[in-house]
Design a protein around this nucleic acid. Sequence first.
DNA 1: GGTGTTGTTCGATCGTTGTCGAACAAGGGT
DNA 2: ACCCTTGTTCGACAACGATCGAACAACACC
Lengths: 101, 101
Amino acid sequence: MELHEPDLTAVPVTAVLAALADDVRLQIVRALADGGEAACGSFDFGVSKATRSHHLKVLREAGLTRTRAAGTSRLVRLRRDEVDTLYPGLLDAVLTSRPTA
Amino acid sequence: MELHEPDLTAVPVTAVLAALADDVRLQIVRALADGGEAACGSFDFGVSKATRSHHLKVLREAGLTRTRAAGTSRLVRLRRDEVDTLYPGLLDAVLTSRPTA
DNA sequence: GGTGTTGTTCGATCGTTGTCGAACAAGGGT
DNA sequence: ACCCTTGTTCGACAACGATCGAACAACACC
């Protein structure tokens, strides 16, 4: 399986913002904010696994996450350093905002 | 005319991000980044005035801009301080990104 | 009052996207 | 080999949103 993980600089800002402008995806990003890895299945936010897979794809193709295979699972992690370098303050601003605002 | 300018804290983060996740609106925000006021008509980015009015409404209702009447015109300005207080780094991150990325 | 300028609103269209179930693929375990 | 778990992909559907032209409203100015 080809994992499409673009260079962040190649992703339009609007695409990055659009990727973050969704409740489910924001919850995923929040869950990854500690820098750790998590399996796709660990993000159970009341959506089907098809939908979850879709959201993870959006985040990945926006250059926000990296994914690696581990057995039958896939481990996802936030590309925190790269995002912070290109958009300093963006993740902090989004992550420190109270959930379900 | 009732101008709907919500308290920023009452706007979901996703709505703020969604408001910024559009090329036309991002151009508007960039044009207002210097802190000045501008008439709606000054944002001529190749869209009709109906579309422009729609985008300004989205920005206003996301709590990102304020609008005041001035004759037949309406002057728009960015709510920079408030946004920076609630989402420090967000506007900077977005505004310093190279346009047409 | 009439005309022109500036914006907003309405209705319609059309592409995008969030959502699901079902089918499929790849591994691990017994 | 078989099955179960984990994800992805494929249609389909519904909701949303960007866009436009046209109609309307508010104001200024002559």
